[in-house]
Design a protein around this nucleic acid. Structure first.
Lengths: 118, 118
DNA sequence: CCGGATCCCTTGCGATACTG
DNA sequence: CAGTATCGCAAGGGATCCGG
């Protein structure tokens, strides 16, 4: 196996990894939902609906399911009347905190650097 | 001004920052393009076209323009025959390296944690 | 309260062909 | 080589209503 092949194999793996990450975070709402839950630790459906300004219940429902499938959040049905549902980040989901923080910082820098000067 | 108001103002700013960041990175191709240029330091249009498997020249052209408007890359027309164009990250664009690296790492962890077990 | 089902519209993106 | 122009589709997402 040549050096070049190794090199390109590595790049391919990197690309796949980035793709996996973006897959989880893409869409119009995912990050805001994560951010909301992350910030409050535990959060109910209707509360997230309030936090994430503009999202519809349909989308929230769908995105939450996505995140659950990816084992980033845990869904707990509370036995109240009427039913309430709590969402919280899993241990794996908590690792996203770094990413979100980085994005936040970078976004602020970017605003200073570029957007502010428009 | 109450404590609660400050608190929510801060969250709003955070949300805006994340949004700014995602705005730059969103879309099907941006990250791969950045990754390609970043990796090779300087890269020509047709080379990026090869790196980013599956992208069409139309999309590449459009995304590059986006990135240029956001001052993340610098476009240089070389006086050759026929014309070639080189792209490279600006200083500001280079700050994305951290983000991309984090995403890559996280993606690999995520694959181990979740995708691999599907 | 939670969230699924339906309808509809907008946007992103692909394919292809064309120009300097 | 480095783009631009046009067409068209399919996915993403909004509004609303319904059911457990």
């Amino acid at each position: 196996m040549t050096c070049k092949t190794d090199f390109q194999t590595d790049r391919k793996k990197e690309m796949m990894a980035v793709h996996d990450a973006m897959d989880v975070l893409s869409g119009k709402w995912k990050i805001y939902i994560i951010s909301s839950i992350c910030h409050y630790n535990k959060r109910r459906f209707s509360d997230i609906l309030d936090d994430v300004v503009g999202i519809s219940n349909k989308m929230l429902s769908k995105e939450l399911k996505d995140l659950e499938v990816n084992k980033l959040i845990k869904r707990t049905v509370l036995d109240t009347q009427p039913v309430t549902v709590q969402y919280e980040l899993t241990e794996h989901g908590l690792t996203l905190k770094t990413i979100v923080n980085n994005l936040t910082e970078w976004g602020m820098a970017h605003r200073k650097e570029v957007i502010g000067k428009k």
